[in-house]
Simulated assay, not measured.
Amino acid sequence: MKTTLRMAALVVLITALVSPALQAQTDLSDRLTVTSNVWKKGLSPSTNLTDFEPTNTLKVESPGQVNTHSIANSLRRSPFDVDKYYPRRGTENFFNVYLGLNNWLEDGDLPNSDKLYSLLPINSWYVGLNFDNISHLLGPLYLDWGIGASFLDYAFENTRVSVDKVDDAVVFSERNDITGRKSKINVGYLNVHFVPTISFGRYRDFRVGFGVYGGYRISSNTKMKYDDASGDKQKDKMSDSFHINPFKYGFRGQIGWDFMDLFFNYDLTEFFDEDKTAPRLTPVTFGIIF
């Protein structure tokens, strides 16, 4: 008898624990069924989702109701939702972060390692903060345009290199009295870009573009970190124009999918003023847009 009562109590306890979970699962299944199909009624701001019945067709019952085509399309999309896609019309706005690596070319080639201005690309960073816009023009054609700021590091392969401005010349010299740890030029720009882009795919989430950009220099300095003859750590920083060209412009190529794009910048202007005595260097940048 005691055994029977214990079994009955155990069954009652299990039923009490399981029933709420089963009911919650049933409610969740019903909600998913409603929201994963196209509804047969139009939406109004006061509509309760529980009033809808699932169906395979879309019916907008009156012109005064909100068009549900865009809602239906979003419900049909895969679990891998597209975070950044080009609009069917109008303009979309994004805040993007640019991360990349810098280098420069001399007569179309990378400078040899024995040149004092040869760079170490892995330490030559590009960081950009941009307010970008995507405007639909015609069919698959869009215009990617925006404004922002970028900060570029040009880190020298030889960490004992010092950069100085002497009259109308830029002088690179090697300091033999120190143990170099880092030597670089930092430059900041305000930028604009205009990149015609062709977008593909069901959600216009794959794109390829080629256009132009321009920038105005807002800051520049050199920085050296080294150990002196006594072994003490030192840091020298000097702010100056260093005859760096105040303006820059060039070509930009982009290719992207969903929330990420790859970009490539090729300057048509030289890094230093053309009328100064300095190496003839053309900057290039490759990176990612988030």
Rank of each mutant, 00 (worst) to 15 (best):
S173H: 11
K165F: 02
S173D: 07
R160A: 10
F151D: 01
D168H: 02
Y142G: 04
R175A: 05
D132L: 05
V161R: 00
W145E: 13
R175Y: 09
F172I: 00
D164K: 06
D167N: 15
I134Y: 09
N176K: 06
N158A: 10
V171I: 06
A155I: 05
L137K: 03
E174S: 10
G146R: 09
E157Q: 14
A169W: 02
N176F: 02
D132Q: 10
D132H: 02
L138Q: 12
D132G: 06
G146M: 12
N176M: 03
P140Y: 01
D132M: 11
V166P: 00
F156Y: 10
E157Y: 05
D153P: 09
D164T: 05
E157W: 11
I134K: 06
I147E: 07
T159P: 04
D132R: 13
R175G: 11
V161P: 00
N158C: 13
E174V: 04
G139S: 07
D132V: 13
R160D: 14
A155V: 13
D168G: 03
S135W: 05
W145F: 11
D164W: 00
N133Y: 07
G146K: 08
D164H: 03
Y154I: 03
G139W: 07
N176R: 08
A169G: 06
N133L: 05
R175C: 08
V166S: 05
F172N: 00
R160K: 07
A149P: 12
L141M: 11
N133D: 14
D164P: 01
F151W: 11
R175D: 14
T159F: 15
D164Q: 13
T159M: 08
V163W: 09
F156A: 15
D168N: 04
K165S: 11
N133E: 12
A149V: 14
V161A: 01
R175I: 08
D167T: 08
A149L: 14
L141A: 14
H136C: 01
S173Q: 12
D167E: 06
V161D: 00
V166G: 05
V166R: 10
N133R: 06
R160F: 01
L138W: 04
G146H: 04
A169E: 12
G146Q: 12
Y154W: 04
E157L: 15
Y154C: 04
R175E: 13
V170W: 01
L143G: 08
Y142F: 12
V171Q: 05
S135E: 13
I147Q: 15
N158E: 14
